[in-house]
Simulated scan of single mutants.
Amino acid sequence: EGKPGGMDPTEAALAFALGLYRFERYRRRDAAPPRLVTPGADEAQVASLARACALAKDLINTPANDLGPAELEGAARELAGRFGAQIEVITGDELLTKGYPAVHAVGRAAAPGREPRMIEITWGEAGRPGVALVGKGVVFDTGGLDLKPSAGMRLMKKDMGGAAHVLALGAMVMEARLPVRLSVLVPAVENAVSGDAMRPGDVLATRKGLSVEVGNTDAEGRLILADALTRASELSPDLTLDLATLTGAARVALGPQLPPFFTDDEDLAAAIEAGARKASDPVWRLPLWKGYLASLETEIADLKNDPDAWAQAGAMTAALFLQKFAPAGAWAHFDIFAWNPRAQPGYPVGGEAQAILGLFAMLKARYA
């Protein structure tokens, strides 16, 4: 049909636009990027999606000295302002009085000015189907007192990749004016080391009321997501999606290019896979295998954050932990890498947007 390589003109233009991305905050290139004019392409949609993906990549690529919790809040405020959305931010010790104790526990060790916070963006008319997007916003992960080795810490500026992804996906939804009531929920923390850091063996309260024994302070992402998912459930959404750079086990299972997702909703799983195929944005479903639930049990609390070693499947046990806090109804969890470790044409080394183009295609099919 005259499509280049069988591709839709809009898809071809988007692929080219995504391939032009460069992170230039600290190192400017003089050459102006080329611009592709593709007859028949929806240039407005291409610009919107490319701009959103560039936002995610820019946030991921920015090091933690220039992107702390406050700067992540600033990016969320800028996004809310651009689309006329509401934003509420709960910061520091106010997290305790407002019911986000796990977010506070993970982030309280950070330096002054880098306090933990809960960011909530709301957009769209009340009464429309609710869509909650929850993103892990750990701006840097030392591992806490269970300190990561140097090699494991090197890329931890990207541990807010989930937050960057839900901000970008939220931008796509708002710019397309999808008829939904959108909530973007980002717990933003630095998992730092100080005299006030949470300790192995501590028992944390959560917003849901479940107690969690901290077996390992480096399994902190699921702790902040627990409070954020509980908040999402209070909104009674039609659909909840959470994205997080959660486990190394997901990379052992599927590598850096193929993010796993988890859901027990068969219709949602099929819709996610259809959106992924349509957008050429690959994902792979892994099971929420209930046989591993026992690995989260502990004698002194409702559950623990470091599953027993016998279960082995770290990405699955993390997802099972999150499921205990997820809203009833349609929910899916994405364990993304958010990084290209190897340069390829169109994919420079550095921050990468994964799954959200496919998720946007799914959301359009579901609600538009």
Rank of each mutant, 00 (worst) to 15 (best):
G248S: 07
P237H: 05
V252N: 03
Q86F: 00
L185V: 14
G351W: 05
Y347D: 06
P341F: 06
P237Y: 09
G248K: 07
E220T: 10
G215F: 01
P237F: 11
D66L: 09
A368V: 11
E78M: 15
A64C: 13
K148L: 08
P200E: 01
G152Q: 08
R25C: 05
A50T: 12
D159M: 07
A151P: 03
L182D: 02
L322N: 03
L268M: 11
A75R: 15
R29L: 15
K304I: 05
D42T: 12
A294W: 14
R181Q: 11
G291S: 06
A168G: 12
A315I: 00
L235I: 10
F83I: 10
G107R: 14
M153P: 06
I272P: 02
F334P: 03
A13Y: 07
A52Y: 05
A41I: 09
L49D: 13
A44Q: 11
V89I: 15
A164Q: 14
P33R: 00
F262S: 04
F83K: 01
G358K: 02
G68H: 11
S211R: 10
A318H: 03
A15V: 14
G127I: 14
N340L: 02
L293N: 15
L223I: 01
A15M: 13
D66G: 07
Y26N: 14
V37F: 01
D227W: 06
G84S: 13
V106S: 09
G255P: 13
L359K: 01
A52F: 06
L363P: 05
G329E: 03
L95Y: 02
R366G: 12
G135C: 08
S233F: 08
L20A: 04
D281Y: 01
V203S: 04
E125F: 12
T240I: 05
A318R: 01
A332I: 14
L59Q: 12
A343W: 13
P129Q: 07
Q86Y: 00
A313I: 02
L241D: 13
V166F: 04
A41P: 11
K364S: 14
E120Q: 14
E73M: 13
S48R: 14
D42I: 08
A111D: 07
G201T: 04
A31V: 15
P187S: 10
K98H: 13
S233E: 07
G161F: 09
G40L: 03
